[in-house]
């Protein structure tokens, strides 16, 4: 029987109260949202805390998808199912729905949250790759107010984030740029709902002439954290999208990533996947931007 080590259970009723508890309990406490990453880690005793602070009651406060003219704001307690089912979100950023379809299974998606996924900081985690692809920023709140960090700053290593012991991730902000845009996500997994062997997200913005105004690729499971590849963006900007350009991007992805050989596959195979999935998602993103 897998059971976590003993801990004291606390339940937060507001963000401010959660921060108050964290201030008091410090590093001996951890927030739990959906719990579908953290509880399995605690069952395996890979994570142990004296206090667990349940923030599921904050869904009313932190569960939302707000679409603005120049920014989409998503509350950290928004559950996978809500992200999957939001037509408005799929309209602006189809990459979310692509990714959500391949995250775990429908029952797990009823519990897991965007904020929990990002805070888990697993190198193979899909929404981290999506947020990296979309150049998202993370709003972190503490007793002294809010600070906003980029995805690159948010993930400081495997299973490590910029969120301090007395802080809470409250919101993800994604810039909405003008012009035609498209995005897509693709994942290779050993079995349905598994962690990625490798996955890739791509987003593309076209100017009036149909040339690439900006492009971004985010990869999961090929480095210590999900990886954005600025070299691809630089290589693609200003060009008209075509197959040779996707090939170039794939080659850059394969060369820039840093996979390791493990039970999910060899480093060589993962580089091959980074190449192939980069091309595949860019192709799809362009197709969507043009339609």
């Amino acid at each position: 029987m897998q059971v976590p080590a003993p801990f004291e259970y606390e339940r937060a009723t507001s963000v401010d109260q959660a921060i108050g508890l964290l201030e008091r309990l410090g590093s001996s406490a951890r927030l739990v949202a959906g719990g579908h990453s953290l509880l399995p880690m605690m069952k395996l005793r890979l994570a142990n805390f004296e206090y667990l602070i349940d923030i599921n009651d904050l869904h009313g406060e932190l569960g939302y998808i707000r679409l603005g003219a120049d920014e989409v704001r998503i509350g950290a307690m928004t559950r996978h199912r809500e992200l999957l089912e939001s037509d408005a979100l799929a309209q602006v950023f189809p990459v979310f729905r692509d990714a959500e379809k391949v995250i775990a299974d429908p029952i797990v998606r009823n519990r897991g949250t965007l904020g929990g996924s990002l805070c888990q900081a697993d190198p193979s985690e899909d929404l981290s790759a999506v947020c990296t692809t979309l150049d998202a920023s993370c709003v972190i709140r503490g007793a002294n107010g809010e600070r906003v960090v980029s995805m690159e700053e948010f993930h400081v290593g495997p299973y490590e984030t910029a969120v301090a012991d007395n802080e809470i991730l409250t919101e993800i902000r994604i810039p909405v740029k003008s012009g035609k845009s498209g995005s897509a996500y693709a994942k290779v997994e050993r079995r349905a709902g598994d962690w990625a062997v490798v996955s890739a997200g791509a987003a593309i913005w076209l100017d009036d002439k149909g040339h690439i105004h900006d492009a971004r690729v985010g990869l999961a499971a090929v480095g210590p954290n999900t990886t954005g590849i600025p070299e691809i963006s630089a290589a693609l900007r200003g060009h008209e999208p075509d197959e040779s350009l996707f090939e170039l991007a794939g080659a850059i992805a394969a060369r820039s990533c840093d996979p390791s050989t493990d039970t999910r596959g060899s480093a060589e195979y993962k580089r091959h996947l980074a190449d192939e999935l980069t091309r595949r998602t860019l192709r799809k993103a362009v197709e969507r931007a043009r339609s």
């Binding site: 339940r11 509880l39 349940d54 429908p106 029952i107 797990v108």
Partner: peptide, 11 residues
């Protein structure tokens, strides 16, 4: 629907 092996009774 939730998987009750991954939900605390306290939750």
């Amino acid at each position: 629907p939730v998987k009750s092996c991954t939900v605390l009774a306290a939750m």
